[in-house]
């Protein structure tokens, strides 16, 4: 089927099978490999993207449901080359070991901070609990999200 969608601000047209996961279309058809496969069952959230501003697991999102929607991937978060404050905070706090979970963490945190600009540590843990980091770098990830929350206005 033909899918029209907006990816990182650019109109995209894809002709593909309706039940292909959005994740695979982003990675294989559009070359946006910043979105990661982790489990294919929505349990690790490495594949997180924003669909009309909402956090979704792209591995469990059939491409057909992306039709007509706006998608933001990690590649589209920086504006005009300026990193989003969550991205900046991750660098400042060294919030990565292997870094494979980081794109999903950043997008989840970005959507969360939009709604909860001044979160407590417990709120961060609750909101981020769906995102797995097997290096278990959670303390630094929490520090980075705190850092971003304190870091002022949206980039």
């Amino acid at each position: 089927m033909r899918i029209d969608m907006t990816v990182n601000g650019t109109a995209r047209q894809i002709d593909t099978e309706a039940d292909r996961p959005l994740l695979e279309v982003l990675r294989e058809d559009l070359g946006l490999t910043g979105t990661k496969y982790g489990c294919g069952e929505g349990q690790c959230r490495a594949c997180t993207v924003l669909l009309d501003g909402r956090v979704v697991a792209s591995c469990r999102t059939p491409i057909s449901t992306a039709a007509g929607k706006k998608i933001t991937t990690i590649e589209g978060l920086a504006l005009n080359g300026r990193l989003h404050r969550v991205q900046q905070a991750f660098i400042a706090e060294g919030a990565m070991q292997c870094g494979y979970c980081v794109p999903g963490m950043i997008l989840t945190a970005t959507a969360f901070l939009e709604k909860t600009p001044h979160p407590s540590e417990a709120q961060i843990a609750e909101a981020m609990n769906g995102n797995l980091c097997r290096c278990a770098g959670y303390p630094r990830l929490i520090a980075a999200i705190h850092h971003a929350a304190k870091g002022g206005a949206h980039a």
Binding site: T33, T35, L83, G94
Partner: peptide, 27 residues
């Protein structure tokens, strides 16, 4: 010292083994 390639990681540009793409590549 933190990772020197942190910028590539937070922007999704770092190529992990599963991100490598070669001309004409199949899956």
């Amino acid at each position: 010292q933190y990772r020197a390639d942190a910028h590539a990681i937070v922007t999704g540009k770092h190529e992990y083994p599963s991100d490598i793409k070669r001309p004409g590549m199949l899956y």
